[in-house]
């Protein structure tokens, strides 16, 4: 997969659990899990904005492009 989701890295840096993040971002735990495991097909700007706001980071900190 070319786009890598580094959500778990950012969560570890901020010492935030999946439960806590899901509560703060207001998305379900299962959806957040789909995003974290890289199974998601797309991410809404609004979701990305909320995650960046809570984790105090940039979109590039969460998403990364790797040439396979």
């Amino acid at each position: 997969m070319a786009i890598i989701v580094n959500l778990d890295v950012m969560m570890a840096k901020r010492k935030m659990s999946l439960n806590e993040l899901s509560e703060k971002v207001d998305i379900t735990l299962s959806n957040l899990s789909i995003l974290k495991t890289g199974k998601a097909k797309a991410i809404r700007f609004s979701t990305l904005e909320s995650i960046c706001k809570v984790l105090e980071c940039q979109p590039a900190d969460i998403l990364e492009y790797r040439n396979d």
Binding site: I27, I34, A40, I43, R44, T47
Partner: peptide
């Protein structure tokens, strides 16, 4: 629907 379900 699958794509929509996997859009977070």
């Amino acid at each position: 629907k699958n794509e929509n379900d996997l859009t977070i």
